[in-house]
Design a protein around this nucleic acid. Structure first.
Lengths: 180, 180
DNA sequence: ACGAGTGTAAAACGATCACTTTACATTCGC
DNA sequence: GCGAATGTAAAGTGATCGTTTTACACTCGT
């Protein structure tokens, strides 16, 4: 048989590009099968439904994104985001977009979004702790908001949004480190 | 004749709720006509097409949103956002969502998004100037990113995101006010 | 009372939607 | 070399998409 794992990877990869570029609902199954080089029969054997395909795409994207965020400082965090947008176009967070497009009513998608945002928040908690030597949930939430804001502002302002967010985050961190 | 202006307002109002709740593509014309209490013939006489309806909805929302942002301080800015989310559910920015759903390929929608974000940036420029007594584009961009971040983080973290963003913005402002 | 304007309800348009099925080719272990 | 598995291509499923059309009713100024 053909390598099932490789086929699935190719499917998730091409589907992610299409969903990101054209949106979830506007991307039809024929475009997905063509891009993956699969018959619709095989595609359905692999993922079961369009909703489950979207959820699988989001889970794979979460792993890839989180892998790129293995950094130990807020500068590293925003540098990682800048690097992400060197290979991906900035169109806002795909998790939030998919969740919004489906009205929050597709459980697989809603759960993938929640899981991803939970992991992101935890990662930022750790980075903030590494920076100032103790946990600071309030500061971590502020950095998370800058991260979320940079992700979305980059979609319409270009990548100057990312150094601006990085600058602001650094200032907030320095303020807590000194007077903490 | 029936009041054409009132009919149009009712149409835009119900359409905005549906687009926001279920997404643009997933909301069909039958749902829109039913919610507006109009025949499809009349709806098409008023707005011409679904794309133009979305653009009209966005323009009306821009006016309403900008009217709610007539404030003179960053505290006022984030308080206004909190007030906005008392009557609207937080699902991220409808302009960015619509733009993303249509792949940036519907000119009316893309232009409405660009116009809105331009106005928002100008308003925040003015607010920052009122706070510190001079223009500061870098600081204004940081506040904009916090605003964008709060808008989207509120969708999955609840409204604690807004006071957190307000707190961070205040800290950034105070830093520039003191040290010039 | 009449034509123009404005409204409705409902059928019809071809296209496309997610998904299934049919029919057939290939590769595999044994 | 045979049966099971896995693949393809392509037609077909009924539903729904955005949009237009047909047919008909009401209200206006004149």
């Amino acid at each position: 048989m053909h390598d099932s794992h490789e086929t699935r990877a190719r499917l998730l990869d091409s589907a992610e590009k299409l969903f990101d570029r054209y949106g979830f609902t506007a991307t039809g199954m024929d475009r997905l099968t063509t891009a993956a080089g699969l018959s619709s029969r095989t595609l359905y054997k692999h993922v079961g439904s369009k909703n489950r395909l979207m959820a699988a795409v989001l889970d794979a994207r979460d792993r890839r994104f989180m892998r790129s965020l293995r950094v130990a400082s807020v500068d590293g965090l925003f540098d990682a985001l800048a690097r992400w947008f060197e290979s991906e176009e900035a169109r806002g967070c795909l998790f939030l977009r998919s969740w919004g497009e489906t009205g929050g009513e597709v459980p697989e998608v809603a759960e993938a979004m929640t899981r991803h945002k939970q992991r992101l928040a935890e990662r930022i908690d750790e980075i903030v702790e590494a920076e100032i030597g103790r946990r600071d949930e309030a500061l971590a939430e502020e950095v998370l908001i800058l991260f979320e804001g940079a992700t979305h502002a980059a979609a319409y302002r270009g990548e100057t949004a990312i150094p601006a967010a990085r600058r602001a985050a650094r200032r907030l961190i320095e303020g807590r480190r000194a007077s903490g």
